[in-house]
Measured scan of single mutants.
Amino acid sequence: TGIVNVSSSLNVRSSASTSSKVIGSLSGNTKVTIVGEEGAFYKIEYKGSHGYVAAEYI
């Protein structure tokens, strides 16, 4: 489990890349469940599926 540490919002992406499609966003202080790690990204549970967020902001 981690907490989103941004002042505005954090993009949730379809894969572990900044060039991948943005599938949603999370606001600051949102609690997320981390299920894996790929490079600089965490794989998280997101809306019944999975998404990827930049690990530096969690």
Results as ranks from 00 to 15, higher is better:
residue 1 T to F: 15
residue 1 T to V: 14
residue 1 T to M: 11
residue 1 T to A: 10
residue 2 G to D: 04
residue 2 G to M: 08
residue 2 G to N: 05
residue 2 G to P: 04
residue 3 I to V: 12
residue 3 I to D: 04
residue 3 I to Y: 14
residue 3 I to T: 09
residue 3 I to R: 09
residue 4 V to I: 08
residue 4 V to N: 04
residue 4 V to D: 03
residue 5 N to D: 07
residue 5 N to Q: 08
residue 5 N to P: 04
residue 5 N to K: 11
residue 5 N to H: 09
residue 5 N to T: 11
residue 5 N to V: 12
residue 5 N to I: 13
residue 5 N to G: 06
residue 6 V to H: 10
residue 6 V to I: 13
residue 6 V to Y: 07
residue 6 V to D: 06
residue 6 V to M: 08
residue 6 V to Q: 08
residue 6 V to K: 12
residue 6 V to R: 08
residue 6 V to A: 10
residue 7 S to C: 15
residue 7 S to Q: 12
residue 7 S to E: 12
residue 8 S to F: 14
residue 8 S to Y: 14
residue 8 S to T: 14
residue 8 S to P: 12
residue 9 S to F: 13
residue 9 S to Y: 13
residue 9 S to M: 11
residue 10 L to C: 15
residue 10 L to T: 09
residue 10 L to I: 15
residue 11 N to S: 14
residue 11 N to T: 13
residue 11 N to R: 11
residue 11 N to I: 15
residue 11 N to D: 15
residue 11 N to H: 14
residue 11 N to E: 15
residue 12 V to H: 01
residue 12 V to I: 07
residue 12 V to G: 00
residue 13 R to W: 15
residue 13 R to G: 05
residue 13 R to N: 11
residue 13 R to Y: 15
residue 13 R to S: 08
residue 13 R to D: 03
residue 13 R to K: 08
residue 14 S to G: 10
residue 14 S to M: 13
residue 14 S to P: 05
residue 15 S to C: 13
residue 15 S to F: 07
residue 15 S to W: 08
residue 15 S to E: 15
residue 16 A to I: 05
residue 16 A to V: 05
residue 16 A to Y: 05
residue 16 A to C: 06
residue 16 A to W: 04
residue 17 S to P: 01
residue 17 S to K: 07
residue 17 S to H: 09
residue 17 S to R: 06
residue 18 T to L: 14
residue 18 T to N: 13
residue 18 T to P: 14
residue 18 T to W: 15
residue 19 S to L: 10
residue 19 S to C: 12
residue 19 S to W: 08
residue 19 S to Q: 11
residue 19 S to I: 09
residue 19 S to D: 14
residue 19 S to R: 09
residue 19 S to H: 12
residue 19 S to E: 13
residue 20 S to C: 05
residue 20 S to Q: 01
residue 20 S to Y: 07
residue 20 S to A: 13
residue 21 K to Y: 08
residue 21 K to L: 11
residue 21 K to D: 12
residue 21 K to H: 10
residue 22 V to S: 06
residue 22 V to R: 04
residue 22 V to M: 05
residue 23 I to N: 00
residue 23 I to V: 07
residue 23 I to T: 03
residue 24 G to F: 07
residue 24 G to H: 01
residue 24 G to Q: 03
residue 24 G to I: 03
residue 24 G to C: 05
residue 25 S to M: 14
residue 25 S to I: 15
residue 25 S to D: 06
residue 25 S to R: 13
residue 25 S to K: 14
residue 26 L to V: 10
residue 26 L to G: 00
residue 26 L to Q: 02
residue 27 S to V: 12
residue 27 S to F: 10
residue 27 S to L: 14
residue 27 S to I: 11
residue 28 G to K: 14
residue 28 G to S: 12
residue 28 G to F: 14
residue 28 G to H: 14
residue 29 N to F: 13
residue 29 N to Y: 13
residue 29 N to E: 07
residue 29 N to K: 10
residue 29 N to V: 06
residue 29 N to D: 08
residue 30 T to W: 07
residue 30 T to K: 06
residue 30 T to Q: 11
residue 30 T to N: 06
residue 30 T to S: 13
residue 30 T to F: 06
residue 31 K to R: 13
residue 31 K to W: 13
residue 31 K to F: 11
residue 31 K to C: 13
residue 31 K to Q: 12
residue 31 K to V: 14
residue 31 K to N: 08
residue 32 V to F: 04
residue 32 V to Y: 03
residue 32 V to H: 01
residue 32 V to E: 00
residue 32 V to M: 03
residue 33 T to E: 07
residue 33 T to N: 10
residue 33 T to M: 09
residue 33 T to H: 09
residue 33 T to W: 11
residue 33 T to I: 13
residue 33 T to C: 14
residue 34 I to G: 01
residue 35 V to N: 03
residue 35 V to D: 02
residue 35 V to K: 05
residue 36 G to S: 08
residue 36 G to Y: 05
residue 36 G to V: 04
residue 37 E to A: 13
residue 37 E to I: 15
residue 37 E to Q: 15
residue 38 E to F: 10
residue 38 E to N: 06
residue 38 E to M: 08
residue 39 G to V: 03
residue 39 G to T: 03
residue 39 G to M: 05
residue 39 G to W: 04
residue 39 G to H: 05
residue 39 G to C: 05
residue 40 A to G: 14
residue 40 A to W: 07
residue 40 A to H: 09
residue 40 A to V: 09
residue 40 A to T: 09
residue 40 A to S: 12
residue 41 F to P: 00
residue 41 F to C: 03
residue 41 F to N: 03
residue 41 F to R: 00
residue 42 Y to V: 06
residue 42 Y to H: 02
residue 42 Y to I: 06
residue 42 Y to N: 01
residue 43 K to Y: 05
residue 43 K to W: 04
residue 43 K to G: 01
residue 43 K to T: 03
residue 44 I to P: 01
residue 44 I to E: 00
residue 44 I to V: 05
residue 44 I to T: 00
residue 44 I to D: 00
residue 44 I to R: 00
residue 44 I to N: 01
residue 44 I to A: 00
residue 44 I to M: 02
residue 44 I to S: 00
residue 45 E to C: 14
residue 45 E to L: 13
residue 45 E to K: 10
residue 45 E to A: 09
residue 46 Y to R: 00
residue 46 Y to W: 11
residue 46 Y to I: 03
residue 46 Y to N: 01
residue 46 Y to A: 00
residue 46 Y to C: 03
residue 46 Y to S: 00
residue 47 K to F: 09
residue 47 K to D: 10
residue 47 K to E: 12
residue 47 K to Y: 09
residue 48 G to W: 05
residue 48 G to K: 06
residue 48 G to A: 06
residue 48 G to H: 06
residue 48 G to S: 07
residue 49 S to V: 11
residue 49 S to W: 07
residue 49 S to I: 11
residue 49 S to D: 08
residue 50 H to P: 05
residue 50 H to A: 06
residue 50 H to Q: 06
residue 50 H to N: 05
residue 51 G to L: 02
residue 51 G to F: 03
residue 51 G to D: 01
residue 52 Y to N: 00
residue 52 Y to I: 00
residue 52 Y to S: 00
residue 52 Y to G: 00
residue 52 Y to Q: 00
residue 52 Y to P: 00
residue 53 V to I: 08
residue 53 V to T: 01
residue 53 V to H: 00
residue 53 V to W: 00
residue 53 V to R: 00
residue 53 V to M: 02
residue 53 V to A: 04
residue 53 V to C: 03
residue 54 A to R: 13
residue 54 A to V: 13
residue 54 A to I: 14
residue 54 A to S: 10
residue 55 A to Y: 06
residue 55 A to I: 14
residue 55 A to T: 10
residue 55 A to L: 08
residue 55 A to Q: 13
residue 56 E to W: 07
residue 56 E to L: 10
residue 56 E to D: 08
residue 56 E to K: 13
residue 56 E to F: 08
residue 56 E to P: 05
residue 56 E to S: 09
residue 57 Y to E: 07
residue 57 Y to N: 08
residue 57 Y to A: 09
residue 57 Y to I: 03
residue 57 Y to L: 07
residue 58 I to R: 00
residue 58 I to M: 04
residue 58 I to E: 01
residue 58 I to A: 01
